[in-house]
């Protein structure tokens, strides 16, 4: 594979041809906010609209997860246009999000907190009207708890369960504001074909899927 070189935020970086920009940047210690992508997913959904960056020579910001690196590319991850798009996307996302960090198991390791910090905005923005979903919490699994109110619908868990593990216990259902990650017929995890491997919990960026206690997490990893 051909090695190419590019510049991200003034730093010269070498990468393999064909790689996606997002993973090159993250692999070199340059953080770009992202939620929906997973490195082994060759067809990124590019749905979260958070990984916007500016590429020299391109008028509009591009999503880093879908942008293939090319030789001599010059990237600015902190460009004003890109950050503006990412901030709005994040604020919209958070407008229907339950924010209760003090009582959340992911407090401190939550990617939403990391993104808010990186974009220099609050988790609870008042730019958009807040509408919460008020869905029931599924506590039936012996390994994890699923709180759909905290779900950002990034789809990582769905992809992992289906593509990486070939189980297909969870997926998206309904449409628009009602959209939710759920099991077949919306049954409880304990009654579904979920095998309780916990892979979905490991990729969940926020507090939607959490292990029932820290001990279980240690045992699992």
């Amino acid at each position: 594979m051909k090695t190419i070189s590019l510049t991200i935020d003034g730093k010269r970086i070498s990468a393999n041809e064909g790689e996606k920009l997002l993973w090159v940047a993250l692999g070199n210690g340059i953080y770009i906010p992202n939620l929906c992508g997973l490195q082994d997913n060759s067809q990124p959904p590019a749905a979260c609209r958070l990984c916007f960056v500016e590429v020299e020579g391109k008028e509009k910001p591009v999503t880093a997860c879908t942008e293939t690196v090319t030789d001599g590319m010059v990237i600015d991850t902190r460009g004003g246009k890109a950050l503006r798009l990412a901030r709005t996307a994040f604020e919209l996302l958070m407008s229907s999000q339950q924010v209760d960090c003090a009582h959340c198991a992911k407090n401190g390791s939550c990617e939403l907190q990391q993104i808010a910090h990186h974009l220099n905005i609050k988790l609870k923005s008042n730019r958009f009207r807040r509408i919460l979903r008020e869905l029931p919490i599924d506590d039936s699994s012996s390994v994890f708890t699923y709180d759909p109110n905290k779900c950002v619908l990034c789809g990582r868990c769905v992809w992992v369960c289906r593509e990486r593990l070939g189980i297909g216990a969870i997926g998206f259902a309904y449409r628009g504001f009602q959209r939710v990650v759920t099991t077949f017929a919306g049954e409880a995890f304990a009654d579904s074909k979920c095998q309780e491997c916990g892979e979905c919990v490991r990729v969940c960026p926020c507090g939607a899927l959490v292990f029932k206690n820290d001990k279980t997490e240690e045992e699992q990893t």
């Binding site: 189980i167 216990a169 997926g171 259902a173 077949f184 017929a185 074909k193």
Partner: peptide, 25 residues
């Protein structure tokens, strides 16, 4: 009904959730 969804999923070799997903959409 649930049974119909499961039959269809089996027939098309897709997870049941995919059938449910389309129905609810």
């Amino acid at each position: 009904p649930r049974e119909a969804m499961l039959e269809i999923a089996k027939f098309l070799s897709i997870p049941g959730i995919d059938v449910y997903s389309v129905i609810t959409f």
